[in-house]
Amino acid sequence: MPSALVFFTELSDAPSKAQRELLTLAASIGEPTVAVASEVPEAAVTQLGAYGVNKLLVAPANESSFLDHSLSALEAAVKESAAQVVVVANDNFSREVAARIAVRVDGSIVTDAIDISADLVVTKDELAGSYSAQAQASGGVLFVTLKPNSIEDTPQAQAVSVSVEELAVSAATAPSVRIMATEEKVASDRPKLTEARVVVAGGRGVNGDFSAVEALADALGGAVGASRAATDAGWISHDAQIGQTGVTVSPQLFISAGISGAIQQKAGMQTSKCIIAINKDVDAPVFEIADFGIVGDLDKVLPQAAEEIRRRQA
């Protein structure tokens, strides 16, 4: 059985949905080890046991380090665990840490994975999700970054006990990058955009006012997204941007409102299971990929739909 290592930069009391998906995948490959580049709370250790993790390697955080600490922690964990496959999240930071260690240990890396089989064949998205490909590594440690919403989060039937070890992390070797300032973002009560089962997104057509988009998202318990036209205009934070240069989402339901459906925009949402589009222009390209399309004014359609959902749920 191959051995799998899961690497997190941080793990809070309750692992996130994307983190639980990584744990589920690792457990399906082999006895998973988890390494974390910061302190892990007791509650999280119990959670790891529920996913069949029998070993946890902890490298206490170094707040002043941008990248070096994570690099050293992952390098040490790869050596300590002797894992053949290392799975990490799909965000830019995790990708970069994994990619650099892949170079250091002469391994390899596959990004945007949606599955890994027991014999380590990786299934992944290509060309913004318009193709699906399978790849395999012929030697060395294989690093894989996993897209959220690809694996069904499932704890093991039987929890195991987790042995916790501190990782001996060597001093930084890379040229220094200093953190000059850190601005914390305001946490939202809505689900995380990349992990949400429902996403409601608005574009230039919302004309500066996201309240109708937000109200429908809240009626559906979903996340709020946006096109680049809307984020560039400053109507909503850049974090909400979906697309080639924003985040990629793959929810059960994607509702697009006042978005034309440019190629760079579609790149971030076309693997959604179901797409609904509202646009007042019948020729908007978004209708070519919508399972259900409404030619109409979003200012009328969105509030009516939100109201109807609340009425039916009451």
């Binding site: 609904i276 509202i278 019948v282 209708f287 070519e288 990929i289 919508a290 399972d291 259900f292 399309g293 409404i294 030619v295 109409g296 004014d297 009328k300 359609v301 969105l302 509030p303 009516q304 739909a305 939100a306 109201e307 109807e308």
Partner: peptide, 15 residues
């Protein structure tokens, strides 16, 4: 492309 409808006042309900 799936079904496309024109809003004639009830499209929110149809959604």
């Amino acid at each position: 492309a799936g079904t496309i409808i024109n809003d004639s006042g009830q499209a929110g309900i149809a959604l």
